[in-house]
Design a protein around this nucleic acid. Structure first.
Lengths: 170, 170
DNA sequence: CGGAATTAGCTATCATGGCAACTATTGGCA
DNA sequence: TGCCAATAGTTGCCATGATAGCTAATTCCG
């Protein structure tokens, strides 16, 4: 690992990384930070955070049947997030509605309102564009390899770092 | 993009991604989240967050000359972070010390204390191990390609999402 | 049937990040 | 010289994330 790297220059680190693994880890976290900000930036006109947009899309994806609160959390990008207050904001904004489930009254079913769907119809193309720009540096083949590498890393680290007792991990 | 993907399974998304770029973006953010938690987990015994450890390492790297506050922020993984309160904690913990610079009294120079260096000597090998584990799913060649892809994506997105007036961007 | 264990969700608390306003210091320049 | 802009940090306010503890509803079994 004697070669100078771009990440080193980016963070103005003069010394080489102690290992390729360290370089990869730092590059991963730093790149995600940059991309997250870039994508989050396009949501500013709507006053939505990336997490809120993410949740709203998950809820819309559930269709008319709705989706219980904790099922949303499992599908979020940030797994550990506190979902209640995030949904409170979406409900206050009139983008979703919640009601107690009939068969199991512990559950709270979330559905997207018409207003919520309208917002997504507006926002989706813009986020799509942002995603394209975010990955524009990679060719199609590179992108596929990139995704495969991310998948491999994520799966290998899924249990490590598990924040809570995972539901389906027994 | 008709093939089913691992990320889709992981976030229980039944529909295919709208584009490879979207899949890549989500995979990047989600993987970084998982790895960040896994690495951050090993710092718990010391009560340090990943950002604090990151800052402490940067400060130690500056040596006896020290480093001004804002120069630390430029080198952090999370670029936009408010650095003052983070340094307050490190100072309260006795890991760093701060003093006004003599030539330019606006600057506050930060240095690692002996205690701070001792902590890093203990922590570094453990974080190294965590980094190795985080990237263990990739072979040496895959890892190099992975790093190259991350570098390319990060650089292409560096200006987009720029949170503040970048110092050296004029 | 009935109580323990489980599950779904909410709340409280603490730490952190984003952002803007504010102070102090320095530098430019007419 | 004296004013104005730029720079370095700090602080306050709000939103979010991490966690743990709590309540209500349900399920498991003896």
């Amino acid at each position: 690992m004697a070669r100078p790297s771009r990440v080193q220059l980016a963070i103005k680190q003069t010394r080489p990384f102690r290992s390729a693994a360290q370089e990869g880890t730092i590059a991963l976290l730093r790149t995600a930070s940059v991309v997250s900000r870039a994508v989050g930036r396009v949501l500013e006109p709507w006053g939505l955070s990336l997490a809120q947009y993410n949740a709203l899309r998950i809820i819309r994806g559930a269709g008319t049947g709705g989706i219980p609160t904790l099922a949303i959390r499992e599908r979020m990008i940030e797994e550990g997030t506190t979902i209640t207050r995030l949904l409170d904001k979406l409900e206050q904004a009139g983008l979703i509605e919640r009601e107690r489930s009939l068969p199991d009254r512990r559950q709270v079913i979330c559905r997207a309102t018409m207003e919520g769907k309208r917002w997504l119809d507006e926002i989706d193309p813009i986020v799509d564009l942002a995603d394209e720009e975010a990955m524009a540096a990679l060719g199609p083949r590179q992108l596929q390899q990139f995704i495969a590498a991310l998948d491999a890393v994520r799966e290998a680290n899924a249990e490590r770092g598990a924040p809570r007792t995972m539901v389906g991990s027994s």
